[in-house]
Nucleic acid binder design. Structure first.
Lengths: 209, 209
DNA sequence: CCTACCGATCGGTAGG
DNA sequence: CCTACCGATCGGTAGG
């Protein structure tokens, strides 16, 4: 008598996959309809399960949002690293430009993500450890670059976190202003990159005579 | 026979006042509960009228939000001007710091306002003319300061809008990061102002050697 | 993992 | 300016 271990055909999302599938669904909602269309129910529907199912994997809505945000941070980090590598930059200033371009591009490609990552949360909610770690990793890419630049003498001696925060603020602010249409969006990614480069160039060399 | 013109006692919001009263109510909701608690119904209730009443004065929710945002822009503009005046700054660099401090302070005092002004809208929605004008006025305060600084030779020759955008981005980005807790909020307004000053100082003098 | 239900909230309209 | 209503959506839970 043969023993048959028949694997079930992989139907749409089931078993342990649902946890990940709900993140996928949430991301899709986020990208297509913005941050407001992201609900537990909609994510469940998109994943092909009942709206009660998500509670098997996430304590509440915030838990799912947190998981999505965590993935967002990883994507952002990856985007910055990719841009850094693609640029082949060797000088600190060029590296910072590459990181900035990666950041802004990510924001333009996934505006809802940036919105979710920085502010999709109730301010009362405690930030889960894993999410905090993902955020810190993104920051560390920037901070390390600044630190190396100061160490090598390419950047002026100044508080590393201050310099990193200046870069971050300028790039984050620009992203937000572009996303919300307060500043007209450049027509092509090239022009976008050029804008980032000009602004970071001003930060690099100073605006005061 | 005396003619008596008896003014009605000013009951809670009525007649032509409702339009303004709804803005007041909306602002209050915005400041107390954040941008999510701002609904037409809640504003109506706070103003002491039925939830159908607002439609006499505003076409829909977006129209009320727009009116609130418009007031927000005016408050922001006023806050920047006040800080500029209070600082007594004469040099362009100091003026920019004062404007930046005003901006960030406003953001810390009314976080939901900044959130509403820049992004409380559906991206599909057309921006009403009056709202656009209020936004441009805020920008003009910054732009004029930059322009004067370039004209007087205090600032390096560069595209005025680029320089203004660099200032705006850095200050807007910092505000957002502070509001969302991505960057720890300084304990006092003084430390807050000092942080803005350091970052804008980096922009003024450059970070690259 | 599902069905069926809860209470709450919302924007908006009818009709007066 | 009000009452009364609509359809829709939501987060969450009971109970299986």
């Amino acid at each position: 008598m043969k023993i048959r271990v028949t694997k079930k055909a992989p139907d749409a999302y089931q078993h342990g996959d649902l946890r990940e599938a709900l993140i996928d669904a949430g991301v899709k909602l986020l990208m297509e309809g913005g941050v407001d269309t992201l609900s537990l129910r909609a994510a469940a529907q998109l994943a092909g399960v009942s709206h009660a199912a998500p509670y098997r994997h996430y304590r509440d809505k915030d838990a799912l949002i947190s998981a999505i945000a965590e993935r967002g941070f990883r994507m952002l980090t990856a985007r910055m690293r990719a841009q850094l590598e693609a640029s082949g930059a060797r000088k600190a200033g060029r590296k910072l430009v590459a990181l900035g371009v990666g950041y802004v591009m990510f924001g333009m490609e996934h505006p809802a993500y940036l919105q979710l990552i920085f502010g999709g949360f109730r301010s009362r909610t405690e930030i889960p450890l894993e999410l905090a770690l993902a955020g810190e990793e993104a920051y560390r890419v920037l901070r390390d670059t600044v630190e190396a630049g100061v160490a090598s003498g390419e950047l002026n001696k100044a508080d590393v976190d201050d310099v990193a925060l200046a870069c971050w603020s300028i790039v984050h602010g620009l992203s937000m202003l572009l996303i919300h249409g307060a500043v007209p969006k450049p027509d092509t990614p090239q022009l976008e990159a050029a804008l980032v480069e000009r602004l970071l160039g001003l930060l690099s060399h100073g605006i005061e005579r």
